[in-house]
C-alpha cells in the first residue's frame, strides 16, 4: 500500500479494465471463430487453384475472379471481354431481393403497426402468432409454397372457384414466385424491428399532427415514419441481406431461368462438378456488396445522429 490514494485509484481502474477484457473474451472468441476465420478461409480459397473433382490445389491463382468478371473464349486465349453471365445473375439477385424487401415492407409495416396498437396485454400473443409458421423448417415452408402456387394448386383453385379467372395463372417458375418465396421466408425479420420501434413511438405526436390539421397520410409520412425509421431500415436490411444470398426459394420456385447468386455459390460446392475457388470468389463478391450497403447505411445513420445532437 505504499502507492497511496492516487495510485490506488488508477490501480482500481486497471482492475476494471482487465475484468472487462476477460468478460468480453467470449464475444471475441465467438466473432473470431465464426466470423473472422470463415471469411479468411473463404478469401484464401478464392485465390487457390481448383481441383477437378471438387476441392482445391494449394497454388495461388486469380482464375476464380477472372472467370467471374471476364470472358476469354472457350480455350482462354482470346482477349478479355466482360463476362455478363455472372454479373447478370448478381444483378438479378439484387433486384429480386429488393422486390422481396419492398413486398415485406408493404405487408410488414401495417402488420407491425397493427400489433403495436393493440392493448398491451394482447401484443405478445400477436407477436407469437406471427412467428408460429416460422417454427417449421424453411425448406418445408418453401416446398409447400410451391404446392400452393402451382397451376393446379389451392391458390389457382380458389381464384377459379370464385370466378375471378378462368384459366390458372402460372406463378411458379417466375420472378414473382421467387419474390413471394423470399418475402415469405423473411417476413418476421421485417415485422419485429418495426413493431419494436412503433411500440416505442409516442402516439400523442400523431394526435398533435392531427390537431394541427394534418391528414392521416401526411401524419404517416412526416411524423410517424421519421420516428420509426431506424426500425424500418433494420427490417429492410434483415430481409434484403439473407434474400440476396438465398438459394432455396430461387431453386424451388424460380426454376432454371431465375437463378440467383446463392444458387450459383451453392452449386460450386455440391458433388463433384463444383469449383470451390469460384464459389469462394462469388461469395467474396456478394459479401463485399453487402458490406458496402451496410456501410452506406451506417454512415447515414451516424450523420443523422450527429445532426440530432
Amino acid at each position: 500500500m505504499a502507492g497511496g490514494a492516487a495510485s490506488g485509484g488508477s490501480a482500481a481502474t486497471d482492475t476494471y479494465k482487465e475484468a472487462r477484457n476477460w468478460l468480453l473474451l467470449p464475444s471475441w472468441v465467438y466473432l473470431g471463430a465464426f466470423v473472422l476465420v470463415p471469411v479468411i478461409m473463404m478469401l484464401i480459397y478464392s485465390f487457390l487453384t481448383k481441383e477437378f473433382r471438387g476441392g482445391v490445389v494449394w497454388e495461388f491463382s486469380t482464375a476464380a475472379y477472372d472467370q467471374f468478371f471476364f470472358d476469354r473464349g472457350l480455350f482462354g486465349d482470346e482477349p478479355a471481354r466482360i463476362e455478363w453471365t455472372y454479373i447478370t445473375i448478381f444483378w438479378r439477385s439484387i433486384w429480386q431481393a429488393g422486390a422481396a424487401t419492398l413486398l415485406a415492407l408493404a405487408i410488414g409495416f401495417p402488420t407491425a403497426y397493427f400489433i403495436a396498437t393493440r392493448p398491451e396485454q394482447a401484443r405478445p400473443m400477436w407477436v407469437f402468432l406471427i412467428t408460429i409458421p416460422y417454427w417449421v423448417n424453411l425448406l418445408i415452408r418453401t416446398v409447400s409454397m410451391k404446392f400452393m402456387l402451382r397451376d393446379s394448386g389451392p391458390l389457382n383453385d380458389f381464384l377459379i372457384g370464385t370466378g375471378l379467372i378462368n384459366d390458372p395463372i402460372s406463378i411458379i417458375n417466375t420472378n414473382f414466385a421467387v419474390q413471394l418465396g423470399l418475402f415469405y421466408s423473411y417476413l418476421p425479420f421485417m415485422v419485429l424491428p418495426i413493431y419494436a420501434s412503433v411500440e416505442r413511438y409516442n402516439f400523442s405526436l400523431s394526435e398533435a399532427a392531427a390537431d394541427l390539421y394534418a391528414s392521416k397520410w401526411v401524419t404517416l409520412r412526416r411524423v410517424l415514419l421519421p420516428a420509426v425509421k431506424p426500425g424500418v431500415i433494420a427490417g429492410c436490411i434483415l430481409v434484403f441481406v439473407p434474400s440476396m444470398g438465398s438459394f432455396l426459394a430461387p431453386d424451388l420456385l424460380g426454376g432454371a431461368k431465375n437463378f440467383m447468386i446463392g444458387s450459383l455459390i451453392e452449386e460450386q460446392f455440391k458433388g463433384n462438378a463444383g469449383n470451390w475457388p469460384f464459389g469462394a470468389a462469388a461469395s467474396m463478391v456478394l459479401l463485399s456488396m453487402v458490406l458496402i450497403v451496410l456501410m452506406i447505411f451506417a454512415r447515414q445513420q451516424a450523420k443523422a445522429e450527429k445532426e440530432a445532437s
Partner: peptide, 28 residues
C-alpha cells in the same frame, strides 16, 4: 380533429422530435 379550428397544447408537449423548432411551429 384535423377539421376543427381548435389547437391543443399537450401536457407532454408532443413536439415533433425530428423537426427543428421553426418547422414545428410552421407545421400547422
Amino acid at each position: 380533429p384535423n377539421k376543427r379550428p381548435v389547437n391543443t397544447v399537450f401536457q407532454n408537449y408532443a413536439l415533433f422530435p425530428q423537426m427543428t423548432i421553426l418547422d414545428n411551429v410552421a407545421f400547422g
